[in-house]
Nucleic acid binder design. Sequence first.
RNA 1: GGUUCCGUAGCUCAGUUGGAUAGAGCAACAGCCUUCUAAGCUGUGGGUCCCAGGUUCGAAUCCUGGCGGAAUCACCA
Length: 596
Amino acid sequence: MRIETIITDAVTRFLTEKGIDKPDGSLIQIQKTRKEFRGDLTLVVFPLIRLMKKSPQEAGEELGKYLMDLHVIGDFNVVKGFLNLIVESSYWTRFVAQYAGDDDYGIIRPGADRETVLVEFSSPNTNKPLHLGHIRNNLLGYSISLILQANGKDVKKVNLVNDRGIHICKTMLAWQKWGENKTPSDAGLKGDHFVGDMYVRFETAYRAEVNKLVSDGMSEDEARVEAPLIKEAREMLRMWEADDPATVELWKMMNGWVYEGFDVTYKRLGVSFDNIYYESETYHKGKSIVLDGLNKSVLKRREDGSVWADLRERGLDEKLLLRSDGTSVYITQDLGTAVLRQKDYKADRMYYVVGNEQDYHFKVLSLILDELGYEWAGSLEHISYGMVELPTGRMKSREGKVVDADNLIDEMIETAGKLSRELGKLDGLSPSEKEDIVRIIGMGALKYFILKVDPKKNMVFNPEESIDFNGNTGPFIQYTHARICSLLKKAGDQVIKLGDADLSGVILSEKETRVAALIHEFPAIVAEAGKSCSPALIANMIYDLAREYNQFYHDHPVLKEENKAVRDFRLLLSSLTRRVIMRGMGLLGIEVPEKM
RNA sequence: GGUUCCGUAGCUCAGUUGGAUAGAGCAACAGCCUUCUAAGCUGUGGGUCCCAGGUUCGAAUCCUGGCGGAAUCACCA
């Protein structure tokens, strides 16, 4: 049984024996003892003094004496209203021995009664390559999927590709005009970059047209609508929606190029999906749902033909669902996608990993689904994450102020390689081993940097300074892992068989206790990370563990320890630390090398 | 203007239902490799937790009001 439970039970028992018949669980607060005091766990006695009718000091002493009867509590002290408890070494040694060889430590395998949950993430537009903002989205979505899985859920990862609309037509038109019939391989570019360049070509030319019209005396708003290029693009969208064969053919070809490019980036990022939905296939469904709502009089059609949902009674505004010309808007297809998915998976919960700029959109989405009578409307959950900003401010695609995903990945790996060579860390390894390790380190640095931040918060990314390989970073944790691997390998035959170790009599040092206590928390952290959909909780805990372990490693000999029981314990502790680091980093989608 | 989110060290970030003297890393400075990987470890300096009230035995955390920032409120996505 976990020690927190043992203590809570004992305190409850104590109170009951005292005739206090209502020991509310929330009054029993156990936390880690702060560093400056002696002890492992601390019981806060303030909430109990009213029940016990004693001073904090007296109440603490009395409880401390009572808890001493538990075989797991070795000593205690009371400071003001805090009862600090010293846990017996035997509790920790038993705990470490029990889990040192357990691959499933900290995770829950899905059972028969498992919930099915759906996680949507990535959701790219097919008119430009992925950038830093997409990286945060992909890493968060993938990690959250893994974390939910570790909490026993049956997780389906889905992508929703925004593959249609005016922005796609812009790239098609630009290619027709200036693409010279070239393919990405002709141009020597990844498909998504090639198409992205077409988009930029369009926007540049369009901008020039608008400027010209404005200087000729037209208003800015009018010019945006009247520019010949945008008219052509709109005509192309109309052709596309009318299933014009040539237009559809062009659309298929160019989207194909983009997908090839995306696949490469996804693979490098290490993310994958169980299913991919395409907006071009779901927006029809969205339209029919809206028309259905119209028939049921849940929605209203205005005189100009546009269709609206009226959410004013529910604290929001009116929302457009179909344009006056009958074409669909963004939320229309999201309605369709949601309904299709629910039909496909009958998920207990549908998570959407989407930036916080769309908070309002998702409020509206689930309200409309509710209005339309879908009883699962409440199971939608928007995992809203903050923007990634540059030191100069927000990233702006139109101003070219973006950090390209592929470039960034290249740079990370390059830096990792350079550093490895300088430190001579990989001397003597084969080229393919080197390449593998360098990739793992570079990606580890990038992923950890992004995932260690609370998803809800905006974060600042400084291309020059942000990515580091020392301190609170992925490589620091990976290094700790590699060190332990090396240690365990050296231990070789010395490694005791599980269960053979006689650890009785081993007294833990302060550092050893801290390492063990952190590992002890891991399952609770995984659970909390699942509840709050926050990989950052795991990242920070694993960092703490690596830091504490490095201190332990610095201060204590392991293989050179002469006392066999102590040496065995330290090996087991190291082995378990390695396992938790690997598992924890695994939940972030980060690999850990055995050497570095 | 309405709504939502945010404000912690020079910088990037932790701080789990309210708990002790608010913590890490980076940057700066000073140390530690003939000993299990120095991508490590140790030390020093650095704070009006945006401000003001309130609730409480106790507030960075909860409430109210300011100030500052971001997002959103499109027949864009």
